[in-house]
């Protein structure tokens, strides 16, 4: 059943990329426990607006946990305390009246803050541009059933393909590495026959681009898996590493 709670928020405010930024303390009162976390922020923003202040800038779009647009670090945890849950799907019934909640943007060298909680994740798009695709043009495909694929194989590919590109893995990693993101994308395609021809080239190109974008190295901290809202497994990283070393040894890709 729904009830109301009162909270204290410590929200990161930063006017722009060049601003130093600071925490601002705000009150969130009379918050229904049926609300989502972002709806709670909507209510706070309405009040700020009416008080003549600037509302908190934060990204969201689908609010169903699938577009990957939302995300912030809540009391030290990307997307908040609930396992396998994006911020937009976190509901206020998981908080208690009187709680103090710290809200900060995902931080990483490769993700600069645009304003308040809004960050620039275009580095992810550039990693995909480096090779995260199958090179087929529209029009020439064989019949969809021409190549049977074992059910469990497709299911594993789908497990990896669920990545929503939110950046929580990077924010969770002490090295700000993007290995979980890269490995999920590499694994998804490597697990399917359609992705095989370019598998080696893809792995090498994407890892190199990741380095170029300023993401850190993976040192098996495993925080990424724990915080991933889609429960992407770090076994993908092991798969990527195998693929990468095999490819580096054998490949003509320089």
């Amino acid at each position: 059943m729904s009830k109301s709670i009162d909270l204290t928020l410590k929200v990161w405010r930063q006017a722009g990329p060049k601003d130093k930024g600071h925490f601002e303390t705000l009150r969130a009162q009379n918050i229904s426990t049926e609300m989502s976390f972002l709806e709670m922020l909507d209510v706070v923003n309405d009040q700020l607006t009416l008080d003549g202040k600037e509302p908190i800038a934060f990204d969201s779009d689908c609010r169903e946990g699938i577009c990957g647009m939302c995300g912030a670090v809540i009391n030290g945890r990307p997307h908040g305390p609930l396992k396998a849950t994006t911020l937009c799907q976190l509901h206020m019934r998981h908080f208690n009246s009187g709680d103090v909640i710290a809200i900060e943007p995902f931080r990483a060298m490769a993700f600069k803050v645009i304003k308040d909680l809004v960050i620039d994740r275009s580095a992810f798009d550039q990693i995909i541009q480096a090779g995260g695709f199958v090179s087929v043009n529209t029009g020439g495909a064989p019949d969809a059933n021409a190549v049977p694929i074992a059910q469990d194989q497709v299911e594993s590919a789908m497990d990896a393909a669920q990545c929503i590109s939110c950046g929580a893995c990077v924010a969770a990693c002490p090295n700000a590495s993007a290995m979980l993101f890269v490995s999920a994308n590499v694994s998804h395609l490597a697990l399917l026959p359609q992705g095989q021809p370019e598998a080696a080239r893809r792995a090498i190109a994407m890892v190199r681009e990741m380095d170029r974008q300023g993401f850190g190295n993976c040192s098996n901290e495993t925080e990424c898996e724990a915080e991933c809202p889609k429960s992407i497994s770090i076994s993908n990283i092991a798969r990527l590493n195998r693929q990468f070393y095999r490819a580096s040894l054998a490949s003509s890709v320089k």
Partner: peptide
């Protein structure tokens, strides 16, 4: 409609499959 499915499979879309490996 049928060409869409063909193209999507070629792009590596992990559509659900039966035990025999067909869609």
């Amino acid at each position: 409609s049928n060409a869409i499915i063909d193209h999507c499979v070629a792009q590596g879309i992990p559509f659900a499959r039966e035990y025999g490996g067909l869609l």
